[in-house]
Simulated assay, not measured.
Amino acid sequence: MLRIHFTGEDLGRIRIASEPDPMWEVLMSLHRLRRRDTGVLFGPWMRESLPRVPSTTRLLTALAPPVGYSVDFLTPAAGGTIADRMEALRATPLRQVLRDLREFAHQNTTRRLPSWSRELVEGEPEGIGRLADAAHSYFDTVLGPFWERIRVQVCRDRSRRSAALAEGGWDAVLSTLHPSAQWDYPVLRLDFPVDQDLHLGGRGLLLQPSFFCRHAPTTLADPTLPPVLVHPIEHDTFWTTPEANPADGRALAALIGPTRAVLLSALADGAATTGQLARRAGTTPPNASRHITALREAALVSSLRHRNATLHTVTELGLALLEGDSLGIHV
């Protein structure tokens, strides 16, 4: 679990990023490619992008495994264009590089650092320069063709968060960042692969919506770096091309079955909690939760934490599936 500790001063210094962060999207999209997260959301992008991945990307994946710790210095806190981010990466202080490499070795005991990492350890500019060049090439080739669509999706999410802020204050924003979010001032708790505490100490927090962040939010391991919380957005499932097929992808196959059809149909009437959906489907809350998870993985349902309950709603793709009766299921 990740626990973020706020002070009153921190609440006044929370910001929502206005644009996607190129370096976080590079890192998160690398995770998607390595994990082969196909299906409805990323399948079309992955099929188009995989053949174009530059060979130099191996320099990045060596320090950014699909599971586990990735070095913090790959996502520098810098604004501006992708070129500005590359310059920030090239200017990474040697002490941070050494600290991150030690952390990488500590947390990824089954992975060995590549031989060329010696250049990083010795502070040779060619080492960090090659990493920056690889990141820039990957961005231009893999993310560049989709960047405007990615930006639109992230900006829409920011607009939704801003509307929640105007209506309910930061309590409304923090409690709905993710289905796992538990906001009880002064601590925000979130699902996280390791147990970690982040004490803001008056520095505030940057909320960074991320297009390729999937499942749980993430943050930097080094607590001395500027605090940032990278969180998933709610996607338009037809973001890649207008012709995207909503029935394409293995995740969608999980819908076949009467219980999930009943749950999806019930959500067409409006938002509902897990308990309410369980009663409508005539099943237990744990069983309903398992089926809702499958629906969410197929991008048919979205879930947001609200006070002490999780509210589920049907997505545009879920409505399209119900209206078209694509699976031939009648409930």
Rank of each mutant, 00 (worst) to 15 (best):
M1G: 06
R3N: 14
H5I: 04
L11S: 02
E25D: 03
L27V: 09
M28I: 07
S29F: 11
L30S: 08
H31A: 05
R36P: 04
D37A: 09
V40E: 09
M46T: 09
P54F: 07
T61W: 01
L63Q: 07
V71C: 00
G80T: 06
E87H: 07
V97G: 05
R99V: 11
R102G: 05
F104V: 04
Q107T: 11
T109E: 15
R111H: 09
R112K: 13
S117C: 04
E119Y: 08
P125T: 00
G127F: 02
H136C: 08
H136R: 11
T176Q: 14
L177F: 05
P179E: 05
P186F: 02
L190F: 06
V194Y: 12
S210A: 07
C213D: 05
H215K: 11
T219K: 09
D222I: 10
L225W: 03
V230D: 04
T237G: 14
W239P: 08
E243G: 09
L252A: 14
A254E: 13
A254G: 14
R260K: 15
A272V: 11
A272K: 10
L277G: 02
A278Q: 02
A288V: 00
R296K: 12
L300V: 01
L311S: 13
V314N: 02
I329E: 09
